[in-house]
């Protein structure tokens, strides 16, 4: 059996480019070692990234499938593997397998206004869909992006957030930081409070949110207060995973495996599951 038949065997990949996003976040651009495509994917899907012989973990694919030839992963220096991934140089050999999970229902979102609400490193999965929609701009309505980070220095994808996205047609970016630095002129405060302050209308809108578990929890409460309907709210969850193919057991929420049935869930779906994420 070779790579294609054994789903637990990583595909060979090379790190083509590394961007330092923030003091503790790097974005790795990865290409197939044989020069081809690693695999096709949809916005919101994930992949297992291996660094030998350190280990393997699941990361959301932050690039958009509309931009072919590479995959991008935004990785926060948090644990053993991510620390090691922060130490590699361009040209490093890594393993990638995937894609895993169900992506965002971007077909269902066609013709709708989109509200993205993100916090910290969790812009990564949203970015894939944002760039997908911007690359198919005519198929989607107004795009609003509310994004928060701990400080101005912790804003990831700074060029896109500050320069590229605000220039796109009918696309609005609202930024907030938890703690202001002297050079910060924007909003200061947590994402849920900023969302309530901006108070975007739920009419004709689909909301996609991702952030630390505690941010997601309070954002969902704020959206409920603002009369957003559970079936029009999507989030993408993260769980510790090992296999990615629904065998190793740990990523379950009730009878759903985040690696197979998620990571994208509508709030209506989440409300049917035990509150254990």
């Amino acid at each position: 059996m070779g790579c294609k038949q054994n789903p637990l065997l990583p595909g060979k990949a090379i790190v083509a480019e590394i961007r330092q996003e923030t003091p503790d976040v790097k974005t790795l651009r990865v290409v197939a070692a044989d020069g081809g495509e690693l695999f096709d994917y949809q916005p919101g899907q994930c992949a297992m990234v291996s660094l030998f012989p350190v280990g393997e973990a699941l990361f959301s694919i932050t690039s958009s499938p509309t931009r072919q030839g590479f995959l991008e992963f935004s990785i926060k220096n948090t644990g053993m593997l991510t620390r090691a991934l922060h130490e590699i140089e361009p040209g490093a050999f890594i393993g990638v397998r995937g894609p895993y999970g169900k992506g965002f229902p971007y077909d269902l979102m066609k013709g709708k206004d989109l509200l993205f609400i993100g916090g910290g490193i969790a812009l990564a999965p949203l970015r894939s869909l944002i760039n997908y929609c911007l690359d198919n701009r005519h198929e989607y309505g107004k795009i609003e992006i509310i994004y928060g980070a701990r400080s101005a220095a912790d804003l990831v994808q700074r060029v896109e957030l500050l320069e590229n996205w605000p220039k796109c047609t009918d696309t609005h970016v609202y930024l907030t930081v938890d703690a202001a630095s002297p050079d910060w002129t924007g909003n200061v405060g947590f994402v849920p409070a900023f969302l309530e302050q901006l108070n975007p209308s739920p009419a004709g809108k689909i909301t996609i949110t991702c952030g630390p578990p505690v941010m997601i929890k309070f954002v969902l409460q704020s959206l409920a207060k603002m009369n957003y309907q559970p079936e029009n709210i999507f989030t993408t969850l993260e769980m510790k995973m090992k296999c990615g193919i629904g065998k190793c057991g740990r990523c379950n929420i009730g009878d759903k495996y985040v690696c197979k049935d998620g990571p994208v869930f509508s709030l209506a779906q989440l409300q049917q599951l035990p509150p254990e994420f």
Binding site: L8, F52, C243, K247
Partner: peptide, 21 residues
């Protein structure tokens, strides 16, 4: 049936193994 997956090195050679969890 739950399992973990880890990398391990012995001398020059490394392996990825899975183990009951």
């Amino acid at each position: 049936h739950c399992f973990d997956m880890q990398d391990e090195t012995e001398g020059e050679e490394s392996r990825r193994y899975r183990t009951w969890d």
